[in-house]
Design a protein around this nucleic acid. Structure first.
Lengths: 332, 332
DNA sequence: ATGAAAGCGCTAACAG
DNA sequence: CTGTTAGCGCTTTCAT
């Protein structure tokens, strides 16, 4: 590591001023003689000087870096949601010229907040303690995709209840009465909210809930398949299935294909996510789109405000949108 | 920012030792009395102390953070390669408990290397100057997916020439003589290498090159489509197409579908990448798989060695693999 | 408007 | 094996 790093000292020397003046220049102080400004500018350019971010930080400055913590659940690296969040947050930060420190939570809470000015947490799975710790430390943070009851934690979430409600009502409006919801893991908040939305829509429209109206799948294709096997080995088949994710919906489509069930004639299907890798694969999937891009943008905005000034905590809930395509049909 | 940060001083005080001893503990020094070790351990736990990474770094320590720089070409956030690299590097770093600082290069070279101990650069597009600068600064680095002639720059690349050669020869072995290569942007090194491999295979097998054996597409579906339109409006159609990416291959498949060209009976197709989002979409695509996972692992390993000791520069070239599926047929 | 100087929290000699 | 101390490069009073 033959670090040929230029320091503020050398810049000061070359410009013929003190390091304090250079520091002021860097920090965009308004009180600088034009002549000095020019000299410093020249020296910086000539030496290709870049302040050591960590030294600035130690002296009280900013790192200009936000952390993004992704909960490390199984299959995280293949999750549509995680990847999408990463790239959308990256894009949003990029616009503001803020660096991104990406952390995947694994087992132990190892994340050192001194690497960042603030943290965006993409949902919470096993890492609720981590949230509390970061908060206690005074790290500015905002949680994505999760509603929190805690008074003073920023979050920006999606109205999952509404998304599920509208999807279900859309099926009901098409004449469906025997509707099943292939739900996600109830450990995950959004899964619960979607279940609630589903049930609310049934109730509102006077449709009685059956014993297995809601089948739990933990979001995986394998579990979805198990439930489908059970569901279609009984005598009374559902005519419509509302899924907790597009991935699960895709498994329904596969299942239908293998068992010669016509879609949407014999079975209607709605997904959740609007995952482009799936929505257009076999059929044009009717699904609920989450505004992940906006969610990322909002999160970055809120965090930045939070760091810049002391703002009251902000709670934002965004609307999902039902995207109508080809997998829902009428039921007489 | 009411930072209630615990410092080494408080730990020292609580444990009844000097800060130097605590520092030694943190840095896993072997020369510590068991009793002190215990006391420090206890104090650290009790205070939930975490060293300020940037303070350590300023004093000569490590940040334990690697940077990953992705060149910011158009559509980067939707590129299979980029996303795959991000997650594979993240996984490889995770194993070694190293943090990841993700940077997407845009226009200006704004990346501050003081945020990291070393840098992995995922290919180089517009940012060759950045490489030079980082090198000049003495930042340890390794370049992924690109062979470099420069004596002392670490890289780990894929043998694109070989991949293209084998794919082409596979087509030739199936009796094809009129083979077209839908190539990538010649600004991109791998595109050139694939073109060379393609040509070499033709030559080796005594097949004459035609004026439009190689069609340039810049990796986009749109450009691929243009070339296909041209290609199939002439009198003599190719019987096989070797593509620079699966995405381009997918466009060929679409084109064939729309124009009732049977695959593989009338047209054989080979892709490059083995992108699972595409390989199984319409047909099981025969393609060349790049060992991106191994590439990421190697890169992390090399960079770590480079930072830990002063090692001679390492140059690694990995082998791609032809994955034979359903899109190549025999030509009489 | 500018300079001198005191730290920020930590590591790494150095001395014992 | 442990404590003392001198910085690391920068920001920020406090003078001037």
């Amino acid at each position: 590591m033959s670090s040929s790093k230029v320091t503020i000292k050398e810049v000061a020397k070359m410009a013929g001023v003190s390091i304090a003046t250079v520091s002021r220049y860097i920090n965009k102080s308004l009180h600088l003689r034009e002549e000095n400004r020019r000299k410093i500018e020249k020296a910086i350019k000539e030496l290709d000087y870049r302040p050591l971010v960590y030294a600035r930080r130690l002296a009280g400055g900013r790192l200009n870096t936000f952390g993004l913590i992704i909960p490390g659940y199984q299959g995280i690296f293949y999750s549509f949601y995680a990847l999408k969040i990463i790239r959308e947050v990256a894009a949003a930060l990029d616009e503001k010229e803020i660096d991104m420190h990406l952390n995947i939570y694994r087992d132990r809470d190892i994340f050192n907040s001194s690497l960042v000015d603030g943290v965006i947490m993409a949902d919470l799975i096993d890492n609720k303690d981590q949230l509390l710790r970061l908060k206690k430390e005074g790290t500015p943070l905002v949680v994505i995709n999760r509603k929190l009851s805690d008074e003073d934690i920023n979050f920006v979430a999606v109205d999952n209840h509404k998304g599920a409600y509208e999807a279900t009502e859309f099926l009901i409006d098409h004449g469906h009465k025997n509707i099943v919801h292939l739900a996600g893991d109830t450990e995950v908040q959004c899964a619960c909210q979607r279940i609630d939305g589903f049930k609310a829509a049934l109730k509102k429209n006077g449709i009685k809930e059956r014993p297995n109206s809601v089948c739990l799948t933990n979001f995986s294709r394998a579990r979805a398949r198990e439930e489908l096997d059970k569901l279609f080995s009984s005598k009374e088949f559902p005519t419509a299935i509302f899924c907790c994710s597009d991935e699960v919906a895709s498994e329904v489509l596969n299942f239908a294909d293998e068992n010669s069930i016509e879609i949407p004639e014999q079975l209607s299907v709605i997904g959740f996510d609007d995952n482009p890798n799936i929505s257009f694969q076999n059929m044009m999937l009717t699904t609920v789109r989450q505004p992940l891009t906006r969610m990322a943008k909002e999160a970055v905005k809120i965090l930045k405000q939070n760091i810049d000034k002391e703002l009251p905590s902000q709670k934002v809930i965004l609307e999902p949108k039902l995207v109508i395509r080809d997998t829902v049909g009428f039921q007489k």
